[in-house]
Simulated scan of single mutants.
Amino acid sequence: MMSSNRYELVIFDVDGTLMDSLGAISHVVNLSLKELGLPTISHASVGAIVGLSLDAAAQRLLPSATQQTRDQLVALYRQHYKALADANSLDHELFPGVRDTLYELKGRGVTLALATGKSMRGVERMIEEQNFHGLFAAIKTADCAPSKPHPGMLEQALAETAMPPEMALMVGDTDFDLLMANSAGVDACAFPSGAHPRERLAAANPKYWIDAIPQVLDIVSGKR
């Protein structure tokens, strides 16, 4: 039976797309900077690097620092994030409608995947917390591919799911997601949740815009 879906594979970013986590990330980044005796940074400055791997983010945050200092920042971030997560003290949650949208897509026969700057350990924690076991056919992280906007994560997800690029959609909140999609030949959907301003996202020329994750359903069905 032929599918009526416009897209057969939908790949989601995690932080800022599925999870409203910018505040939590900003808090942990600044905890780590303080411990190193470095100036804290604004919420907007943290948003500018959300989506990158930790190593790439540290390079952008501390371009003139030594590699040792950047490595210390990454280690402290991981340490503080894990401690807060273990204590259930991280202020992050799914955006409205995410859970229902994912399961509705799955019910329509759409293959789901993740492409995120988080570590695999961080993604596994999110899946455990949200009871998303078995939902994603491919999970691509900064542990297994170059940092966004390199197309490696999407290329791996396409290969793993045996899906051609023209049948895939990437949904993300940063231009790193959109540029990655462009490089992989995958259509991009921008979700401007706050990390990157609309004008920065627009420069990456996404095919679609949404203001809420459930709107992905209409895109996949061809209604938009």
Rank of each mutant, 00 (worst) to 15 (best):
P149D: 08
N131D: 14
G97P: 03
S119M: 06
F95T: 02
G97F: 07
D86A: 07
Y103N: 14
A115Q: 02
K148L: 04
E129S: 06
L84E: 08
F95I: 05
E129P: 00
D86E: 13
G97R: 07
L112A: 10
H92P: 01
E129D: 11
A83F: 04
L84T: 02
T101Q: 11
S147F: 04
R78I: 00
G117M: 02
D143S: 13
M153R: 08
Y77Q: 06
R108A: 13
E93T: 12
R125C: 02
V110Q: 06
L94A: 13
P96N: 12
K118A: 00
D86M: 02
A85D: 06
M120E: 06
P96E: 08
L90T: 03
A87L: 04
M126F: 09
V110I: 14
M120W: 04
S89C: 11
A145R: 09
T111Y: 05
V123H: 03
L94W: 06
G107P: 10
Q79R: 15
G107I: 13
H92V: 05
C144Y: 07
E128R: 14
L94S: 11
N88L: 11
L84F: 09
E104Y: 14
T101D: 09
P149Y: 09
V110W: 07
E128V: 05
V123D: 00
H80P: 00
E129A: 08
S147C: 10
L112S: 06
L76D: 05
E93L: 09
R108G: 13
A137P: 00
A85M: 04
A138C: 10
R108H: 14
P96W: 11
A87W: 06
Y81E: 01
P96L: 07
G134K: 13
T111H: 10
Y81K: 04
M153S: 08
V123E: 00
T141F: 03
T116P: 01
D100S: 15
Y103S: 13
G97K: 06
G134C: 12
G117W: 00
A115N: 02
D100P: 12
G152W: 03
R121V: 08
N88M: 09
K140L: 09
M153N: 06
S119T: 14
M120L: 14
M120R: 12
L112N: 06
I139M: 08
D100K: 15
H133E: 15
G122N: 02
D86K: 01
